[in-house]
Design a binder for these strands. Structure first.
Lengths: 218, 218
DNA sequence: GTCTATACGGCGATAGAC
DNA sequence: GTCTATCGCCGTATAGAC
C-alpha cells in the first residue's frame, strides 16, 4: 500500500545491471558514468552506489552475473560430448564445438542482454588493463577443464604449441563477439558481423585444423 | 639565443605522442586524461591541445603515425614474396608470413613505442565503439591487397568462408599483441605473452591450415 | 611555441530525510 | 530502498601574457 511491491525492488537492481551492461559494452568502463547508468535505467543516481558500492563493484557484478551461467552451459556441453564419446574420449572438433556451441544455443543470440555481455567480454579480453586479471578470474577454472580434454585428444602436443593454439582460438572468438562491423566493410557486405551462426560453423573446422596441424606428430 | 632550438620544438610534440601512446595502450581512450599525458611527457597541459586540437585529435595522431610505417613494411613484404614466387603466385603460408613477419622485423619488438602501439591496436580492434571505423580507415586499404593475393592462392574459396578466415586471423593476432598475461597464467608459465616470436612461429602454420581447410575444395 | 590562469561542467561518492 | 542535496575533485578546452 505504502510502497511498491517486492517485485519492484528486484526489478530496479536488475534494471541497473542491464543498463550498465549495455553501456559498458559500447563505451568501456571508463567511458561510462554512474549518471549515464542511472538515467538509462530510469533510476536515481544514488541507487547504483547503494546496491553495488562503487562503479567498480557494479562492473564486477555485471561480469559475474552471466559468467556463472555461461560456465555452467559450457561445462554441461563438455560433459555431454565426453559421455557420448567412446573410450578414447571426444575428438578435437567435438571439444571445440562444446566450447563454442553454448554461445549460440538456449536463445542467447536472441537475447539483447547476452549480446551486450559478449561485446563487453570481447573488450575485456583484449584490454591490457583487465584482460589478464578478469578473464583468468571468471573463465579460466572452466577453460582448464577444456584444456584437459584437448590434451587427451592431442596426446603428442607440446605445451607451448598447445597453449598458443588456445590463445588463437580465444582471440578469434572474442573478436567475433565484439560485433565491430569491420568484416562487413572489408568483405563489401558478403559477411555480417552479427551472423554468429555463420562464424561458428566456420570456426569449429578452422580451429580444429589449426590445433591438429600444430599439435599432432608427423 | 632567445629560445630553445628547433630540435626542441619537435621533441616536445613527439614526447606528447609517445606519452599518449603508452597511456592509451594501458588505459584506453577514456581512461586517459590530457593532464596525465602532459605530466607523463613533462610538458605543459595546454601544449597538447595546441598541437593536436583536442584529445580525440591526439588519439588519431597516435594511431596514424605508426600505421603508415607498418603499412609500408607489410606492403614491401607482400611484394617481395610475390616477386620470389613463380607464375602461380605465393603460397598461403608465404602470404600470411608476409602479413605477420613485419611485426617482428626491423627491431619493432625491441622498441617500447611499437609495443605500446600494438597494445593499443589490440584494444581498438575489439572495441565496439571504434573497431569497425578506425581499423577500416587505417588498415583495410592494405589488407585488401593481402586479400587479393590470398584469393589467387585459394581460387576455390567462397567469399563468406574466406572473409571469416581472415577475421579469425585478425582476432588471434590482435589478442597476441595485447600482451594481457592471461595465457601465462593459464599455461602455468609455459607460455609468455611477450614471446612474439613464439606466437609468430605457430600462427603462420596454424592459420594456413585453417584457411586451407575452409577454402580448398575436397 | 610555451606557460599561467581559469572557466565551466561532469565526476564518484555520501549524508541524511523519508 | 529511495531520493534530495551537496562536497570536493578532475575533466577538456581556451584566453591571453610572454
Amino acid at each position: 500500500m505504502t510502497k511498491a511491491p517486492e517485485k519492484n525492488r528486484i526489478r530496479r537492481k536488475d534494471r541497473i545491471l542491464n543498463a550498465a551492461e549495455a553501456l559498458f559494452a559500447k563505451h568501456g568502463f571508463e567511458g561510462v558514468s554512474m549518471r549515464m547508468v542511472a538515467d538509462s535505467a530510469e533510476v536515481d543516481l544514488a541507487l547504483a552506489s547503494y546496491h553495488f558500492g562503487s562503479k567498480r563493484g557494479l562492473f564486477d557484478a555485471v561480469l559475474l552475473r552471466r559468467a556463472e551461467v555461461l560456465n555452467d552451459l559450457r561445462l554441461a556441453a563438455l560433459e555431454k560430448c565426453q559421455a557420448e564419446a567412446g573410450g578414447n574420449g571426444p575428438s578435437v572438433e567435438a571439444i571445440i564445438d562444446a566450447f563454442l556451441h553454448p554461445l549460440l544455443g538456449e536463445g542467447l543470440q536472441a537475447d539483447e542482454g547476452w549480446l551486450h555481455y559478449f561485446e563487453l567480454i570481447a573488450q575485456v579480453n583484449s584490454s591490457y588493463e583487465w584482460g589478464g586479471q578478469l578473464m583468468t578470474k571468471y573463465f579460466d577454472p572452466l577453460v582448464r577443464k577444456f584444456m584437459e580434454a584437448l590434451k587427451a585428444a592431442l596426446p603428442d602436443a607440446e605445451p607451448q604449441d598447445f597453449y598458443w593454439c588456445y590463445h588463437f582460438l580465444s582471440g578469434a572468438l572474442t573478436l567475433t563477439m565484439a560485433h565491430t562491423g569491420r568484416i562487413d566493410q572489408l568483405s563489401d557486405g558478403a559477411v555480417k558481423s552479427e551472423d554468429m551462426v555463420g562464424a561458428y560453423e566456420r570456426m569449429v573446422p578452422f580451429m580444429a585444423a589449426g590445433f591438429k596441424k600444430m599439435c599432432e606428430k608427423g
